[in-house]
Design a protein around this nucleic acid. Structure first.
Length: 348
DNA sequence: AACCCGGGGTA
DNA sequence: TACCCAGGGTT
């Protein structure tokens, strides 16, 4: 656990961006930046932050501005209730709190427009208090490191992630660590396909080990379906007596079962391109098989191939067609064999 | 728990 | 297109 903490902090110190709100401990500026960055990318919010700071260097200026002016300053950022709440809170702090930004977590959380995430961010960044931030980045990083597939958009899921976030938080340097884990999520542990090969945490990342990166974090709203495209190579010998199989040892579907050697593609287009490029070596080509799994939709074509590609791979074995049924085969393979008994004349 | 709020970047 | 972004408030 502390090893993971250290790796995240070290990664941050090596890779962090130079951002204006990281150069201050002024709670007013921290708060302003956090509200601007709610559901907003750094690249989009940065110039707005700079303009606000220039126009309202102190919270009194923001408080005495008109709401219309504040909304104009916010124009183009979206989620305009943020601007209204920002203005309301500035007036409240100036008038009721004598312009002193509250430092108690419960008081920060009570401010209009400040929720759990923003309260933890302000408490840690401005006041070095031990509160773990939990934003979209942190959900993604935690779900992957611990391979936690519970949906993040449920109350039970949220509870578990809050627990994990507090567990992993560096209690000595909460501000540094909070910045670090978010930056790590924003730059390295990105949505979609992160480059896990170069990630300094990959040896501790359970999702990387289990090949579940792209399906995390899980959400209840819409289950994430991954589309995959396979071309299977059917190597029948001349007498149709043997065929080649490969044992799937990698962390993936159908681990330790057998299938024909295959190439995977990212899209139908890529798959079709490969097939047309090699059509002179293809003796027969199957129809497109669609195979539905809970989290993946597989699209597969089977080709009888007259080239030695794969034949010398160490993990490809030659199997008599007669004993194919002694090997554990995925249902997709089984479906193909059932529909092609004429090709596999030795199949019962 | 479900819904609303937004503009913009990215694959 | 679909997804996601340093989320929060209301119902």
């Amino acid at each position: 656990m502390t090893e993971i903490q250290a790796l995240i902090k070290n990664w941050y110190l090596e890779n962090k961006r130079d951002l204006p709100w990281r150069r201050t401990k002024n709670p007013y500026y921290i708060w302003l930046s956090e509200v601007i960055l709610q559901q907003t990318r750094v690249a989009q919010g940065k110039s707005y932050f700079e303009r606000f700071v220039k126009k309202y260097p102190k919270i009194e200026g923001l408080a005495s501005a008109s709401e219309q002016e504040v909304l104009s300053m916010w124009q183009g950022l979206g989620y305009y209730s943020r601007a209204r709440n920002l203005h309301t809170t500035a007036k409240y702090i100036v008038k009721e709190l004598n312009s002193v930004f509250p430092s108690k977590h419960t008081e920060i959380l009570a401010l209009k427009g400040v929720g759990e995430y923003t309260a933890a961010a302000i408490a840690s960044f401005a006041f070095d208090q031990v509160y773990a931030v939990l934003d979209g980045n942190v959900y993604r990083v935690l779900s992957r490191i611990f391979n936690l597939a519970i949906p993040i958009d449920t109350s039970e899921g949220k509870k578990q992630f809050i627990f994990l976030a507090n567990e992993l938080l560096d209690k000595i340097q909460p501000a540094l660590f909070n910045q670090a884990i978010m930056e790590f999520g924003a730059l390295q542990c990105v949505p979609g396909k992160p480059n896990c090969e170069i990630c300094t945490l990959n040896i501790y990342c359970e999702a990387f080990k289990n090949n579940t990166i792209t399906s995390l974090p899980a959400k209840k709203g819409k289950p994430k379906i991954r589309n995959r495209y396979f071309v299977y190579f059917v190597y029948l010998d001349e007498n149709r007596e043997t065929v080649r199989l490969r044992k799937k040892t990698e962390n993936d579907i159908w681990k330790n079962m057998f299938e024909f050697p295959k190439i995977e593609f990212e899209s139908v287009e890529q798959m079709d391109e490969f097939l047309s490029d090699n059509k002179n070596k293809i003796r027969t080509i199957s129809t497109l098989y669609k195979h539905i799994l809970s989290h993946q939709h597989l699209y597969a074509k089977f080709i009888v191939f007259s080239d030695s590609l794969f034949l010398n791979s160490p993990d490809v074995i030659e199997i008599p067609v007669l004993i194919l049924n002694e090997y554990p085969l995925p249902r997709l393979m089984e479906r193909y064999l059932e529909q092609n008994r004429t090709i596999f004349s030795h199949q019962p």
